[in-house]
Design a protein around this nucleic acid. Structure first.
Lengths: 184, 184
DNA sequence: GTCTATACCCGGATAGAC
DNA sequence: GTCTATCCGGGTATAGAC
């Protein structure tokens, strides 16, 4: 199967022209540095050294750019989970740790990719399943358990990103308790 | 202690003038009907039959209105959980069910109350603790477990609100699995 | 406590020249 | 593929009269 070598692309592959890929990378940089409220067509153009109207030669509208960012996040977090699974097969703890680390390293991107319904029709085929697969394998195909574990991990991550836990609370205990309870 | 009877206020108590309370109730209605993007000072004024600038006689700015909405959400969800605890003491399932029901009945309000850091300085004293107390009691004072259970419940709720689970997936199985695993 | 008028800023997006 | 010029809408918020 290694004839189908998978590229560790920083931005989704053939779906985009080279220039469009550069734009998405710039959008990602703006988003991660300054948050979603600062990602505008103007700020994006500024970072690229062009004017905002030029962007519309490459994307029909802003939401098309955002879709690519969402696809990017899903791909990267799937890759992170696949790597964790490869390193420590069958471990829910390894998976949740990888998931947490990725999300906290890219909070704005993670949020963008989870705060709205998936634009399924516009995503690369199979991406959603790919992102879900490692967790489902760890749960031995138990979809209910996998969803519960996902909810736990997402809840922990997003509550932390949103600053909802008290002050400097140490959350490793909560991660441990939850992961062990759902264990697998 | 019943000399300190607690009112089942629809909007936070003495913190606000009667007119300000009406404004918050209108804001709640707009938010729940049309979503956060539609809650503007203009739309809020429209619903009240006044002009937007008049609102600034009652609130210094828009965020002050939002703080009241957040306080409202926390109070109501705490009340829902307290009622569930009173009806079925010691049951995590009863608690998560009440939490879920409240959140899904008021998705926009719930989201507003969880998507950003708590404005702790502006909230009624003790409200955050009150909201956390029932879950902490069910977890026998185990803070790590309580946080894990909260993350699970919030994750389930917010992923459902955000339309992230596949199509018409039945989630009761996942709720059951997660609640039993964290059991208490 | 409400009004009118208005300032101010910012966003997405289009037309048409080069 | 980029530009300039521009439109259009929408938001928060203030000043000052009544």
């Amino acid at each position: 199967m290694d004839c189908v070598r998978r590229r560790a692309s920083s931005v989704a592959d053939d779906r985009l022209t080279p220039r469009a890929r550069e734009i998405v990378e710039a959008a990602r940089a703006v988003l991660e540095e300054s948050g979603p409220g600062s990602l505008t067509m103007r700020s994006l153009a500024d970072r690229l050294g062009i004017k905002a109207p030029s962007l519309y030669k490459h994307f029909p509208d802003k939401s098309a750019v955002e879709v690519e960012l969402i696809a990017l996040m899903l791909t990267e977090s799937a890759e992170a989970c696949e790597a964790a699974e490869a390193a420590t097969p069958g471990s829910l703890a390894a998976l949740t740790t990888a998931y947490r680390d990725y999300a906290l390293a890219h909070p704005h991107l993670y949020r963008l990719g989870t705060e709205r319904p998936l634009p399924r029709h516009a995503l690369p085929p199979g991406l959603e399943d790919r992102a879900a697969a490692p967790l489902l394998r760890v749960c031995d195909g138990d979809g209910d358990l996998a969803r519960a574990a996902w909810a736990f991990a997402h809840g922990m991550v997003i509550l932390e990103i949103n600053g909802r836990f008290p002050e400097g609370a140490d959350l490793t205990g909560a991660w441990k308790k939850g992961t062990e309870a759902l264990h697998s």
